[in-house]
Design a protein around this nucleic acid. Structure first.
Lengths: 124, 124
DNA sequence: TTGACATATTCCCATATAAGTATGTATTGT
DNA sequence: ACAATACATACTTATATGGGAATATGTCAA
């Protein structure tokens, strides 16, 4: 079985760097396709195809106006991603603490005058 | 050109659902490969290959002990993902506000007695 | 109507999977 | 030394990809 289709979910869609660029570009303001093409220097058909993928997973929305199509990113659709990554937050905080503690321990061994910052135990 | 290799970065690595499962499973406690195989019901070679990918992008770490290899997720490597998604937070908050305001507006039109909660403008 | 402009789609291709199967490599216990 | 255990890798295969080129669709303007 090959990799899951990019159209299957937001995780797959944002795996492509160009699409992340497009999402960032379309986050603050809706833009016609041509703007994306010139600003990000991507071939027009390529942009259309990326937009297609993003649209299929709900990461962007379109508003048609004459012969222009204004795209904008639907930030809501990025939330699940943010939340999934967020479930690991306490783990990396814990890891950082461990690293810090080990470093301080080592410092104390090498230089007994060394004291960690946070607890601020000894004051003259 | 196909999609970027899964080994290129964290974004591509977590695009695969199985790998996300593995990362969650290995987040709180290091585990030997066999545990992943039985707990998540994935064939052993498949697990090894997923772990290989995750290891190459730094999403997991290994500790060897005899014929066992204990894997654990390196939460630090998930942070960039969380931060990237986080850059859209203000946009989805803004979008939610807009939706809420439009809804309230419509309610006011239909029922003049209706008043929004938050601003709490009119008090007798 | 006709042509210019803005986007979308189609086709082709080189490449990267992910699953399944079989095999390789350590390491341990006896 | 040998068999068993725990993983890793190699190989095959069906399929999804993204870029490039060509073409189609849709809309406006003269």
């Amino acid at each position: 079985m090959p990799r899951a289709a990019t159209t299957s979910d937001a995780f797959n869609a944002v795996a492509e760097p160009r699409r992340r660029e497009i999402l960032s570009y379309l986050a603050m303001k809706e833009r016609p396709v041509g703007d994306i093409v010139t600003t990000l220097s991507i071939d027009q058909p390529s942009v259309s195809k990326h937009l297609r993928v993003l649209r299929d997973v709900g990461l962007v929305r379109v508003r048609c106006d004459g012969r222009h199509k204004y795209y904008r990113t639907n930030a809501e659709a990025i939330r699940p991603l943010h939340e999934w990554a967020g479930t690991f937050e306490r783990f990396w905080q814990h890891q950082l603490l461990s690293v810090k503690r080990r470093a301080e321990e080592k410092m104390s061994q090498l230089n007994p005058n060394f004291a960690p910052h946070s607890p601020e135990k000894e004051k003259p």
